[in-house]
Amino acid sequence: MTPIIETKNLYKIYTDQASEVRAVDDVSLRIAEGEFTAIVGPSGSGKTTLLNLIGGLDSPTSGSLYAGGKDISGLSEKEIIHFRLHHIGFVFQAYNLIPVLTAKENVSFVMELQGRKKEEIKRRAEELLQAVGLGDRMDSRPAKLSGGQQQRVAVARALASRPQFVLADEPTANLDSQSAENLLDIMEQLNRQEGITFIFSTHDPRIMAKAKRMITLEDGKIKSDVLK
């Protein structure tokens, strides 16, 4: 299958006068379209750094990084922001919704940035919120939603731009068990039914249990890569 993400000898090294930290150390991997992959490992193993590199939020020290068949390691800041808008969906640990906008407006926002038509934006925002079980909370602001509901809005927002893949950094870390289960069920269903690629960075055993592929990092290196 065509890889949607491919890294070759990827390094991210932080240096100061006294020491050198290899957060990502010679990572080469390929992630195919439609995967439901978890990057796991202990704290400091480099999983969030790897996710940030793949999402273009951070730049590698060396190595190549292809996303959607494009080498994104050499893109300018303007180009990488544009790439993120059209190709990547993000789900953050702390939800990071815009507090002054309603759930529907939060989901619509990315599509408005893309310049899509009003009717399409409205239809898709409503569809996505229905899909994540928030059809009745579309006009609620984030402050009126529970943590689980906010994270489901964040998932809907991540999918709104029709990205090639979704990067989710510890998406269940701030949720209670029930909310975490619900969220994972929704994401698994979207993956299964619509073929959306999800890549998680997580400690959560529930994600690990549902993931079809688990990449374990240790000291920035891939320790294991298991396809279930």
């Binding site: 800041e77 922001i81 544009h82 993120r84 808008l85 702390a94 990071n96 940035l113």
Partner: peptide, 16 residues
């Protein structure tokens, strides 16, 4: 600050 970072992360251009 955090929200502005998020806006940039999800693709809001600096000009915007």
């Amino acid at each position: 600050t955090r929200e502005l970072g998020m806006l940039s992360a999800i693709g809001m251009a600096k000009g915007r």
